[in-house]
Design a protein around this nucleic acid. Structure first.
Lengths: 236, 236
DNA sequence: ATTATTCTGTTGTCTATACAAGTTGTATCA
DNA sequence: TGATACAACTTGTATAGACAACAGAATAAT
């Protein structure tokens, strides 16, 4: 196992951010402090910090420091605009309902084919989840995870309901980046019902492939978004 | 001259990529070659190269080199999936029609308001453009550019029809990043007609704010996309 | 009291170097 | 011939240090 030092620092900081050790809006230790803490050079620490910027976990300001981003974006690239404001203003958190628990399934959704390079994976762990903000449904998501080296994944519940956090803590799988295709489509009956919109309403369709710290281990996700109240925003 | 060296290298390489000096799919000079060319250290060169990766102009491979990305993404973040294949396979290029030439206009589109931090800009240079792939329209775009320090912009035509290239070459304005909001909406009459789809068909709506190398100088764009044939894809 | 100035701590940029590790072509050996 | 080993490239990781630029607080000058 040869994990680069800057990746270790990155993962450690990410863990402390998502677990709340470093509070939202608060400052991270300075680069020099992190140097002594991790016994590394400033360049190495900076590499870790810049990765966290790219993933959307922190922002940095010249002469001041690194600030923990307000919204804990699931992956720093796409977040629900307003989610932050909604969640921060009230103590109402965005809810996630698991409609269809983790089950073993083959990936028969043909839409994923262009994203998958190798079809070596036989079975996937499958999820159906519905995400709500202020009790209105905004995302309906199908997730596929290769069933490899994830013992007891199906049996045990998700940590704090978070898939990424569960993968990180229990299995040391760090989700690092993704590619996705975006389309506007007309909602079918099932999607419309779940998102509480009319059939054939325009919805955003996201086809995602997540890259992780484990080589060759990818997650796949198909997401339908109701963008009437909340837009999706992206940065960079 | 207080432009960091790595930014200069970045801009120089970007210019050579977009102008075709470095061909699509070809290899860039090695890091060491670039070091001697620009009289810089490898770390500095690498910083420039990593920025180009982030912007989507190149990809890098351990032990091999830096490859110029196939599609010259306008901004490295969102590109038309298939554009590359279409353009490379045939010699048919994606076309861009300017429907309403550059004119001075105030920004009355209320949709932009959440993106604009300061409303100091009085007048904007305005564009209406339609982009086609293989003669089918896929994007309808409204662009607003602050009318500051851009002499003769309206009078002279765009260099090779490219707005970004014109800004870079003639005015040394380098577009570096953007933020955007994404929605799925139903096409109105004008948009549907231009994109040759039915009224109320689902279309992707992108509200973009581009950041440039000039401090406080932003571009704004509102884009309607027909995603029936070509999806939008994003990376990172 | 208000305004400048200085100081301190922070991040930004950059140099110079070293070794590790992936890729590819070439030479050697069986 | 065919496989293996090697050499010469490439990028990846990491160290140690230096100075510049910025933000904010403390201090000095008015």
């Amino acid at each position: 196992m040869k994990i680069p030092l800057y990746r270790q620092i990155q993962a450690s900081l990410k863990e402390k951010i998502t677990s709340g050790v470093y509070e939202e809006g608060g400052l991270l230790p300075s680069e020099n402090d992190l140097c002594t803490e991790f016994n590394a050079t400033r360049m190495t620490v900076r590499q870790a910090l810049n990765e966290l910027v790219r993933e959307g976990y922190i922002t940095r300001q010249h002469g001041k420091g690194s600030t923990v981003s307000a919204s804990r974006k699931s992956l720093g690239l796409l977040s629900l605009k307003g989610w932050t404001e909604v969640v921060v203003a009230s103590d109402r958190h965005g809810k996630t309902l698991v409609l269809e628990g983790p089950v073993l399934k083959k990936l028969e959704d043909t839409a994923f084919k262009p994203l998958i390079d190798e079809e070596k994976h036989e079975e996937f762990i499958f999820f159906k989840r519905l995400r709500l903000v202020e009790d209105s449904p905004v995302m309906y998501e199908h997730t596929y995870i290769p069933n490899e080296n994830l013992p007891n994944f199906i049996e045990e519940p998700l940590l704090e309901g978070s898939l990424f956090r569960t993968l990180l803590i229990r299995y040391q799988v760090d989700v690092q980046s993704m590619t996705q295709e975006v389309r506007a489509i007309a909602a079918d009956k099932e999607t419309a019902n779940l998102l509480k919109i009319k059939v054939k309403s325009p919805v955003l369709h996201l086809l995602r492939k997540y890259k992780t710290s484990i080589d060759g281990f990818f997650l796949y996700s198909s997401i339908y978004c109701n963008t009437e109240k909340f837009a999706i925003s992206s940065f960079n």
